[in-house]
Nucleic acid binder design. Structure first.
Lengths: 335, 335
DNA sequence: TTGAAAGCGCTAACAA
DNA sequence: TTGTTAGCGCTTTCAA
């Protein structure tokens, strides 16, 4: 590294042109002759020069940064450690990078309640991607109402004044349940908290499938963690014995917790109890028996989230959108 | 949102004080009387005012941003989807937030080769935390040599001109292997690639333990993924039959892949083959049998990483440091 | 196709 | 304890 950090003006002097020319060249402005542009870019590289982003952000009123907020429910352990949420963050990172945008990672705790202020007024970011609706959409709504460019990963069917991208959770819940029914299950437990937006839709899909088959619903409402699932199923077994032959779990982590409880009691999967999860995380394939699951297309969703955010940044409006969903049939539900 | 975005000068006018007073008050400068400070802060809140970070960064030459780079090996699938790396990122996020720092997430792909330039010269961040040494430390070294404030999660024993924080991988490998030996295992396979810095240390710990016990080493070198482990163990079984009675896996994901291969062939865990993983990810507890593992203290490590980075930012130097490690004994290795 | 110059909003040195 | 003021490094309008 040189003794002194170069600035735009220095580079301009070196090249014998004006600062505006260098600025334009480095920003690929077609006003500048291609030849000049290339020459200046090369000079910049040679001298290890980089534009000062603070200065350009100040001047251009644009950051090219997107804040990503992991909006987990406080009081629950589902959080920064949830493999699925993290996978989504990873995919969003890729999608943003492809558009030349950077990712400022945040949890709702850091940003406080006033996202609009914290991220946007302060020019930390141009827009926000919220991962997870949480139980209480008040913060999101407030930000959207304040005019913040904002998109959400969640259940697209939720009425909202901001675009939500996510899976068709209703269909997912229905598919999983129909699959269990087709395998011969008669008493299918729904394992998860229907009060949560996305899970609520999955639950309604479950109910719809049961209804068609004249089967009876049975909910074990738990937090979205594997240990809650483990304890939930254990308690159910202790209280009522093996009163079910199928489980539709609201997530794979939950399904795996349930699986553990079953295996410990030598309840055979899928023979005694068939099991379907949701998310298709890496572990679904590795577990034994491997876990059937509803696969969400997080990659496609991430691209859409970024597209819709960009649309808003350009003053266009964007609508909620559903992405495809798919049943991955593995051992835990084969008959 | 108001029709016009307030700036510091507007707020100063509203309050009837100078801009410097407001600036100092909002930055909690003790020069300003506490009473005035509180009054101005409240006024700011009332008017939904936030300092323009671009402007303050430009002026103060400081971003309060730390770039976190996930430095996975290209060509390998271990990456943004690895639960352990992501857990580390999550912990780092928390540790940074506690110091009022923000986290710019990046993968090595986005930043390109010239980190110093991309993050530091461009004033995107004040410093860098690299998660994972990767197989080739050249990039990191170059950045460190260029004077970039930099810390790395990795193997602290690696000779380096930058501080590395991580577990005592040697002891971890030794502990795991000794535990398997104590359980009666005679032929323990090391499952992982010793060419990777951290894993290499684990391997040497494994060798040390074997050596003391006069046992023979047997390495199955694979990528750090569960599917590679699954195939690796399958191949070994096909080629040589059940020629081992213990596996020391270089990560939990790898251990779980191996476990799946064993279960599919009805090889009993831990009776026929005992198994210890590394990392203690959430799945270790959920799997069946539950997976014994070496737990790394990622929380402590994250705090240290941030501390050492801050030290460098303040012109002090910082040394590599080892964090404690612990064997979590579960079913996969009980006798 | 390029240059001159103003100014983005803040902080901190200096003055009071 | 507070105010005045210069200037951080860039982009962009206007002029040539």
């Amino acid at each position: 590294m040189n003794n002194k950090q170069l600035k735009l003006a220095d580079l301009a002097k070196l090249a014998g042109v004006s600062t505006s020319t260098v600025s334009r060249a480095l920003n690929d402005n077609p006003l500048i002759k291609k030849e000049t542009r290339d020459k200046l870019k090369q000079l910049a590289k040679q001298h290890n020069f980089s534009l000062n982003t603070a200065a350009s952000r100040l001047r251009s009123q644009k950051t090219n940064v997107v804040a990503v907020i992991i909006n987990f429910d406080s009081g629950t352990e589902q959080s920064i450690n949830d493999p699925f949420l993290l996978k989504v963050v990873g995919e969003i990172n890729l999608a943003l990078n492809k558009q030349g945008l950077e990712l400022l990672l945040s949890n709702s705790f850091m940003a406080g309640d006033d996202w609009a202020n914290y991220f946007i007024n302060s020019r930390r970011a141009d827009g926000i991607i919220v991962v997870g609706q949480g139980k209480d959409p008040a913060n999101i709504e407030a930000a959207a109402n304040a005019g913040v460019p904002l998109v959400v990963w969640g259940d697209p069917k939720t009425p909202s004044n901001y675009p939500i991208v996510g899976s068709d959770n209703f269909v997912g819940g229905r598919l999983a349940t129909e699959h269990l029914l087709a395998g011969g299950a008669k008493n299918i437990v729904f394992l998860g908290d229907p009060g949560h937006a996305e899970i609520g839709e999955r639950y309604r899909g479950y109910l719809a499938a049961l209804n068609t088959a004249n089967a009876i619903a049975n909910v074990v409402s738990i937090d979205i963690t594997s240990s809650a699932a483990y304890h939930g199923i254990n308690q159910l077994l202790v209280a009522k014995g093996l009163c079910f032959d199928g489980i539709m779990a609201c997530s794979d982590m939950v399904a795996l917790g349930a699986m553990k409880a079953l295996k410990e009691r030598y309840i055979s999967i899928p023979n005694d109890v068939a099991l379907v999860g949701f998310d298709d995380i890496a572990m679904a394939d590795v577990s034994h028996p491997s876990l059937s699951s509803i696969k969400q297309n997080t990659q496609r969703a991430s691209v859409l989230l970024v597209e819709k955010l960009l649309a808003q940044l350009q003053g266009q409006s964007a609508k909620s959108q559903v992405v495809e969903i798919e049943l991955i049939n593995r051992q835990s539900s084969k008959r």
